[in-house]
């Protein structure tokens, strides 16, 4: 089967939706983090696919490398926050981390 741009776009859209579902349903902070990573990687896949099969040049792939580095940095900050949360609440379930009144 010949793999076209559309295939990549559909795959990226599926990843995007999976990421959103993960974000919405996971109660564990690490799971939420995974959902964000999934969305970022869906976007990465789009960038690379457009760069390879679309009308773009190589910029899309360069951008992807930047995004991968940024995602790593983001994970570091997130894990630090999750650690602080755990120190205080002894849990990483996001719905139990709530002291504020609404």
């Amino acid at each position: 089967m010949h793999v076209t741009l559309l295939h990549y776009l559909v795959l990226a859209a599926v990843l995007f939706v999976l990421g959103l579902v993960t974000l919405a349903t996971r109660r564990n902070a690490i799971g939420v983090l995974l959902g964000i990573e999934l969305i970022l990687n869906a976007a990465n896949l789009n960038l690379v696919a457009f760069s390879r099969h679309g009308i773009g040049g190589v910029e899309g792939q360069v951008f992807t490398v930047f995004v991968i580095a940024l995602a790593a940095a983001e994970t570091v900050v997130a894990l630090a926050i999750v650690l602080a949360i755990f120190h205080h609440y002894r849990t990483v379930e996001v719905d139990r981390v709530s002291q504020m009144k609404n």
Partner: peptide
């Protein structure tokens, strides 16, 4: 983080539509 990911996804589509960043 979700907002940044949305922004990136939107940027990818703009790139796909125009081939420019």
């Amino acid at each position: 983080g979700l907002a940044s990911a949305f922004l990136l996804f939107g940027v990818a589509f703009l790139y796909g539509a125009t081939g420019s960043l």
